[in-house]
Amino acid sequence: MNALRLNGLLAAGLVLLALLGLALGEVALGADGWRLALQPDTPQAQIVWEIRAPRVAAAAAVGAALGLAGAVMQGLLRNPLADPGVLGVSAGAGLGAALAISAGLAAAPGGVEAAALAAALLAGGVLTALAARFREPETLILFGVALSAFAGALTSLVFNLSPSPIATTEILGWLLGSVANRDWGDLARAALPMAAGAGLCAYAARGLVMLTLGEETAALSGLPMARLRAAAVAGAALLTGAAVAVAGVIGFVGLAAPHLVRAAAGADPARTLAPSALAGAALLVAADLAGRLIPTEQELKLGVVTALFGAPLFAMIAWRAARSWRG
């Protein structure tokens, strides 16, 4: 499919889902409510613009960041199984948040988020340095697995040694992922790292297609591969870290979004970037909406919904792809 048309379709879908996200929720607005929502200082306006809108925007931003990071990782590592978590950045960010919560930083506005982002940046920095040193994608994946396991173990240790069950519950809730109760300030804090990450990924895009032929062909292609590789890793780390800082650890979107669009976008990894970001945003806005609308005693966590609905969907895509491989 034509790239412009595909991106247009995905963007239209995203806008539609976002409007639904503004319209639907625990409080039904009705036609009259909508008229009031467009006026200042009404309870309806507060519901729509101070509660629902930042939530929808957060879901869209986090989904876009994860989808883009996933597409960049799959392109860089030439591996359809890669996702933003593969390098251990989300596990690192999760650890940062867990440490901040158990240290009592949860009371300070943005404290946990800042800790998560700082940990993600630290992990991303280590990986960027490793990516400059080691060319083979397998090596980078192995380092990521190690980092992921180590951060996971430390997070478990925080649980293990946590003095209060309240902190434990809070950490768990955070690790499950959610965009509920986010305000514009949370989003504003994440905007800069997300924009920087997206910029780095856009810069790295032209290197991804060259990497399809392997590191050595790319090294002699004339492209500054060392710089492009570092930009891809740093960009994905920034996006993932900022996403985790806003919404906690949300799996699956980063893995699934590139696969959802690949059939339509074509095999060129650079051309999957924008559609993956849009698809990721749409997926997460839809998942958040589903979490709000499915009647459960406690609102379903975003991370739970994405995996619950995403996994079967993903299996279906894999099924169809496998059939086409068999020809």
Binding site: G214, E216, G266, A267, P269
Partner: peptide, 8 residues
């Protein structure tokens, strides 16, 4: 090395 990553 003749490996190709994506089906371009």
């Amino acid at each position: 090395e003749r490996r190709v990553g994506w089906n371009l």
